[in-house]
């Protein structure tokens, strides 16, 4: 079971390394979107500081969703997805491996670069840690829930836009709690409750999402 998990993660990372351009798009998109907001809203520090968590979280949401389309479509096109459906290991395990690989490629870079961008928004020092931790807990949930949308819209024309319509409403709780964590910290209130809630979302998605993704893949590959 674990060998298959490691094998799929290794394979996907290998593919990502060999196609470095795809890795960069999610990251660059995130940086550009975040940098656009001060241009639109104005450089006034107090305002930027208040909107920083929300902007960074929404940008992370959109960036990880951008790369969802490629998660299964490449495998669907060249037939490797069929082999995964017929593999000896349960499909849920393979799907988790693919989601982990997607998170490592499209989620983790966002988490690492978020504090740097937060400086652009003049976010005070202690809040950077809170923001990074909330993103660290939140982005895997984005990948898990996003993978459901990617699996459902496999091989459909106009899939990209459709994924966002399906998945964005489901992202709302993570966005609210994630961005809210930094606001609570800014107001000096305790944030443990919110980290626990984010962790709960992660566990909840980790348990239910693989079933939904596997079911969606079997339906789409038919």
């Amino acid at each position: 079971m674990l060998t298959a998990l490691r094998c799929v993660i290794y394979r996907d990372l290998l593919l990502a390394v060999r196609r470095r351009a795809d890795v960069a798009t999610a990251l660059l998109f995130f940086v550009i979107v975040v940098s656009l907001f001060p241009l639109g809203v104005g450089p006034e520090a107090n305002l930027l500081r208040t909107i920083a968590p929300g902007v960074i979280w929404v940008a992370a949401l959109l960036a990880s969703m951008l790369s969802l389309g490629r998660m299964f479509s490449a495998d669907h096109a060249d037939g490797t997805l069929e082999q995964m459906l017929l593999s000896a290991t349960p499909l849920g395990v393979i799907v988790v491996a693919k989601v982990i690989a997607h998170w490592l490629v499209a989620g983790l870079p966002l988490v690492l670069i978020a504090p740097v961008l937060a400086l652009q928004f003049d976010l005070p020092q202690p809040l950077l840690g809170v923001l990074t931790l909330s993103l660290l807990l939140g982005t895997p949930v984005l990948s898990l829930v996003g993978a459901i949308g990617a699996a459902l819209t496999l091989g459909l024309r106009g899939g990209g836009v459709l994924v966002s319509l399906l998945v964005l409403p489901l992202y709302v709780p993570v966005l609210i709690i994630g961005a809210g964590t930094v606001d609570m910290a800014a107001a000096g209130l305790g944030v443990e409750a919110h980290f626990l809630l984010l962790a709960a979302f992660l566990v909840f998605a980790g348990v239910f999402a693989p079933w939904a993704i596997a079911a969606a893949l079997r339906i789409s590959a038919e």
Partner: peptide, 10 residues
């Protein structure tokens, strides 16, 4: 199957 299930980059 019909498709070779071969990844181009590997």
């Amino acid at each position: 199957g019909h498709s070779n299930a071969v990844k181009d980059d590997l």
